[in-house]
Amino acid sequence: MNAIEVNDLSKRFDSFQLKKVNFTLPKGSIMGFIGENGAGKTTTIKLMLNQLWVDSGSIQIFGLDHKVDEKKIKNDIGVVLDEGYFYENIKPRQISKIMEKIYTQWDAPLFYDYLNRFRLPTDKLIKDFSRGMKMKLSIATALSHHPKLLMLDEATSGLDPVVRSEILDLFLEFIQDEDHSILFSSHITSDLEKVADYITFLHEGGIIFSESKDELLHDYGLLLCGGEDYKTVDKGDIIGHRESRFGHEILVKNKERLKQKYKGLIIDSISIEEIMLFYVKGEEFK
């Protein structure tokens, strides 16, 4: 079964449009949601949470309609937002008291376990917390009602590498349960490269690709060549192109096949960040 199924999702604003977005997050996996700021990641998440209204298309979470079964779905989702949390004049202990009344499955001992693990005080006002501590608290809160799906909107942005790696470890732990899934939007692609099973890339409101990470890294490559060789490369093989002092860099797909085709040329592996940059900033792509 799939944790999330998004079909032909569209939403129009005055200055921005989400165009027929499709992706599927299978149960038991982590999906990284990438794209530059304003690509439509937050809009998509808001639509899934029924905070914005869908113009057309459908969203199913745990196989249920996101609107009809909203309350049921939300009881099983943990959400971490980059903005939007408790007012800062509140203490973690009080958060537990509040959540106990909101989530049917709130687990206070588990919440205190997380606080302990993250070395967060239970009786201090949130306003005295650092950004990293606040984020850890948000994540502890999101995990303490035994959610099946964790949705994170830019949750690790602005955190130092130590805190980020602590959080990523927690995600990997959470995903050990086959029933659990994570949708994780971020523009820190290195984090996603570490933990994600699938990568969905949004650009200007449309999906560029939504594929398994391993296949992506296996499939895409960077062809390096000089000006003369560049002319011999089939235009159909070029997905993105960048010219520098040292020659031409070409984003290609089907790396292994092309290695056979262009025997004299070098085809390197490429990181997700570079793939993203090629699409966003490249001169040409199809």
Binding site: K46, L49, N50, Q51, E70, K71, K72, K74, N75, I77, V79, L81, E83, G84, Y85, F86, Y87, E88, N89, I102, Y103, T104, M151
Partner: peptide
């Protein structure tokens, strides 16, 4: 006002609350 400061609405609407 406190809700607006904390951008609480968005967070609240991610919880099982109608």
């Amino acid at each position: 006002s406190y809700d607006a400061l904390a951008k609480w609405d968005r967070y609240a609407l991610s919880m099982p609350l109608t």
